[in-house]
Design a protein around this nucleic acid. Sequence first.
DNA 1: ATAGTTTATTAGATCGATATAATAACTTAT
DNA 2: ATAAGTTATTATATCGATCTAATAAACTAT
Lengths: 335, 335
Amino acid sequence: MTHKKRVTLQDVANHAGVSRATASLIVRGSSKIAEKTKQKVLNSMHELGYVYDRVAANMRSQSSSTVGLIITDIANPFYAELLRGVHHSLEEAGYTVFLGTTFDSDIKQEQLISRMLEHRVGGIILCPVSESSKNSIERVKAIDIPLVLAVREIENVTCDYVGIDYEVGAQMAVNHLIHKGHRRIAFLGGTSHSTAWKERRNGYCSALKQAGLDIDETLIVESPVTREGGMAAIRKVLFQASPPTAAFCFNDLVAHGVMLGLNDAGLKPGQDLAVVGFDNNNEAPLYNPPLTTVSSYARLIGSQAAILLHQRIVNQDRDTQRIILQPELVVRKSS
Amino acid sequence: MTHKKRVTLQDVANHAGVSRATASLIVRGSSKIAEKTKQKVLNSMHELGYVYDRVAANMRSQSSSTVGLIITDIANPFYAELLRGVHHSLEEAGYTVFLGTTFDSDIKQEQLISRMLEHRVGGIILCPVSESSKNSIERVKAIDIPLVLAVREIENVTCDYVGIDYEVGAQMAVNHLIHKGHRRIAFLGGTSHSTAWKERRNGYCSALKQAGLDIDETLIVESPVTREGGMAAIRKVLFQASPPTAAFCFNDLVAHGVMLGLNDAGLKPGQDLAVVGFDNNNEAPLYNPPLTTVSSYARLIGSQAAILLHQRIVNQDRDTQRIILQPELVVRKSS
DNA sequence: ATAGTTTATTAGATCGATATAATAACTTAT
DNA sequence: ATAAGTTATTATATCGATCTAATAAACTAT
């Protein structure tokens, strides 16, 4: 099959016997075109199989109908949900989404940002990697188009942000465990360089302190944010001198790993050791046992970020907004 | 912050005292430019903060550095994995990916295809919706750029395709259950209009026939391809006169739902009723009990599709290829 | 020194749309 | 019937790069 040449607005105009400019006004839905002309041109478009060329249009009008979404890992259901929220809000508004996945590598993140700028995206929604190097922070700062950060903030970068109050969420989770009578509560998973981790740890610590409990650093174990990470983390604390009776996990993924690790060790989650997650993924109620967790509204974060981005694209000079959603504890059988 | 005007290749050329054409050759890495000139221009680029404009470049050269990926549901881990495969192969080759999600609606699929063509993507990887209407089939046929179908084929549409042999996979699963002594085996989940379902059913039936077993239509239950669908499907067969002793499920997601439904009914999956899935998602070994399933190599399908697409973009006239990956049975505790 | 080659650089047209400002075609008012 | 005012249409420049073909510079060979 040989390459067919693209049908242009000029072709349509010629066919309909009008000027290119008129045809252009029609594709843009201008109201000041006579109905008769409009029908004539629409017919020609249909007949010739005209396909609108957004690339050319965007180039001339210095606008863009694309946005970039950069996430760390699509295998994490949290991001899958966030993506749904973003897609839902943005496609409604007529944008098409470039997706990039960093796999938590800041070099990949820098590349993706550059790539998207080269593609003239109208704006970027960035879920930053957990450890931002100086370089990558500079790269983010240098972005001179609408930018919304989601999930994690970056120090010294002021721009629109949507996330939830991890500190309060962690407090809720840990208070719940204390209330249930637990005294030795582990904090498992995540890496200490991310603000998302630090905030959770702050909440964890302040809840313990308020209850007059000491912080035992051996009960705080970092890990990759995966099921495998969770399995490794629980193993570490389980076999020490005085093991915990409950675990507050960085997120549901880690919590799932923790529960699997407990199973491996012949222990029953929720019975032998209370487990609380963070995120309230779709599948959290379906785990065995159903997981007690803190809802982090992934979908909502996504759609809010999309809305902020759209607003900023429309009005660059608007004040920066920080939207901090309030988490909610969902108690199920695992605690 | 006021909108900075874009730095163009012309600006760079002026600053470096060369012509635009020379600067263009340099960004494209031409070898026939004197080293001294090259350095001079690269310095100017750096100094002015030049950002390459792929949109303009692609427009002039009638090429494209983007491709479209259309999937049905990102919440299905199978597609999350497929996306990883696609991303991995394509970003390597310098493409950026537009992602669209149809939520299994053929109208949405048509819209997304149109949108991507308007964006001048270089090619499309399409995972078709499960029920393609006549209209949507016509829409797919009308695509006149490189197209690769993945996961599901569409009748009467001949183009590159990557999938696995669902029929053989289903046979493997059912044979395994027969071998374990099961005589009443249900086939749960999925919708009968998709080729992916039909092939699985063919495999299911032929395995039963080969073993001299009758096909009981009451044991074949369709459902949405979700956990909830699986829960509903097992409920339907569980309470009939002679319930099955094993279930072959449309995929792991459905199988997970089936196991949860069994739990609800006070039955233990793997003990009271054998469960086999399809896909071998990352989390299949982590279910309770670990799920016996047929590996469908989601990641590989994605990366193969990406490779086929790239090849076709490079050489439009190449013969169409069908890549059918062979499935593999992974036996775990659920059967 | 001159013609012939090779290598490095550039002017000008072009991709397919939109923006701007000017013109043509109608109304309406006088 | 003509001027003034609308409304509908169009010619031309432009977005930021690449392409083509022509030219300038540098190098060989005679």
